[in-house]
Amino acid sequence: MSVIPAIAGFANDLTEIRHDLHAHPELGFEETRTSAKVAEALESYGVDEIHRGLGGTGVVALIHGKAEGNRRVGLRADMDALPIDEASGVDFSSTHPGKMHACGHDGHTTMLLGAARYLAATREFAGTAVLIFQPAEEGLGGARQMIADGLFEQFPVDECYGMHNMPNGRPGEAMVTPGPAMAGASFFDITVRGTGSHAAMPHQSKDPIVIGTALVQQLQSVVSRNTPPTKPIVLSVTKFQAGTAYNVVPATATIAGTIRYFHEDVIAMAEARMKELCSGLAAAYGIEIECETRNVFDVLMNDPALSEEYVAAAADIVGPDHARITDEQMTGSEDFADMLKQVPGAYIRVGHAGTVPLHNPGFVLDDAILPVGASIYARIVERRLPLAGAD
């Protein structure tokens, strides 16, 4: 592995930044401290412009190369944490109960800051690097909000790149999937409106718990009996809430969850079929069932040619044996997909030590990935915005 020497030289500073962000996690659209820390660091690095407020708490910075050039490359990192109580045991654990950086966004932010520090100091490129620090990636639509606020009108880019850490126990393994790489996602909310009763006289009720549990089972038929096996889909019920007392059959139950998909016809079918199942059970039991679905993430589409370029940049850092194109698709979702619908680009996954999964209270990011990610970010800028005569 050949991390850029200058970045390796301030790796300890990156670790310090990451630990500070980790200890002070903020949820989506609440990243006021985080964005202030980002802006403060960028100012100390001497970037050319810093803009705050896009998407509420987003930050955009511009760094101009030694040569003017007319091309611009975007680099994006997310900043928000998750509503999870931390159980990692690290000595810089979250100081905010119920909030944790369990997905590595503190690392992504730090890596992009590392790239900013290097690029502002060296400027060995022609054109402009546009650094995008995005809020609210975790299902709250931060990318869409930045775009709606005029991100690419105010700061146009020719191409854009994102990154995610992967706790797979294979440090420095970098992978890009051309084309559809990560699933789109819809969230659903279902309300079962039955009739409540005394628990000792359930015959007087139209029990939303019994009906709701039947519905949960029926929803799985959307995957097993309605979806072509060649078109993957995941339907997960993640919430079932009903009742407040031992001796009361409640009047309502609520069910919620997510659908992950790669094909537009499949998600359209799944949403329609869910509503048909709800209508059918409502008629069968003589009650009302409301079903609402909403798109939260689009399918992340990596540009094939730029995927190759990103892998080549990563190979400069982690070595050609550890950077590769893969056909592996991920059913996880990522709202960088919304940016890639506006401009071409690619999204890379970089492995690190540790195998506790993302979104787990015990997740620990390997700090050794920080200079690696920062170097990959910096190298893609230098490769895509080469100075005249550069190798």
Rank of each mutant, 00 (worst) to 15 (best):
H96Y: 08
A199W: 13
F125R: 03
G196Y: 08
M182Q: 10
P135W: 04
M111A: 02
V157L: 03
Q145V: 07
E173W: 08
S197F: 10
G169V: 11
T110E: 04
P202R: 12
T110N: 09
D149H: 13
Q145C: 09
C103L: 05
P178W: 13
P156T: 02
S186L: 09
A185V: 14
F125A: 05
C160H: 09
A129N: 14
L131W: 02
E153Q: 15
A120V: 10
G141P: 01
Q204T: 11
N168F: 08
P208E: 00
G107E: 01
E153A: 15
H105W: 01
A102E: 00
Q204D: 15
A148W: 07
A183C: 03
R117C: 07
P202M: 11
I132Q: 04
D207K: 01
A115F: 01
Q204V: 05
I147H: 03
A174H: 07
E137H: 07
Q154G: 02
A102S: 14
A120C: 06
G142P: 09
V192R: 00
Y161W: 02
M175N: 10
A129I: 12
F188N: 05
V176M: 04
L140S: 12
I147Y: 06
F188D: 01
G139S: 07
H108S: 04
T95N: 13
Q134D: 08
A129R: 12
H198R: 01
A143W: 05
T195E: 15
I190Q: 08
L151E: 09
G127F: 07
M163T: 04
Q134C: 08
A102L: 00
G142M: 07
M175D: 04
S197W: 11
L119R: 01
A200Q: 07
V192Q: 00
A129L: 12
I147W: 06
F152I: 10
Q145S: 13
H108L: 11
M100H: 10
E138Q: 05
A121S: 15
Q204H: 14
A116P: 03
L151D: 11
M163C: 08
L119I: 02
H108R: 05
Q204W: 09
Q204K: 14
A129W: 03
G194M: 03
V176K: 02
M146G: 09
R170L: 14
L151I: 13
I190G: 04
A174G: 14
G196L: 06
T195Y: 05
T110D: 11
V157M: 06
S205W: 05
G150R: 08
I132W: 05
S205Q: 10
R117D: 05
T110I: 01
D189L: 04
S94E: 13
G196V: 08
A185H: 00
A199N: 02
A148T: 12
A181P: 07
T191N: 06
R193Q: 14
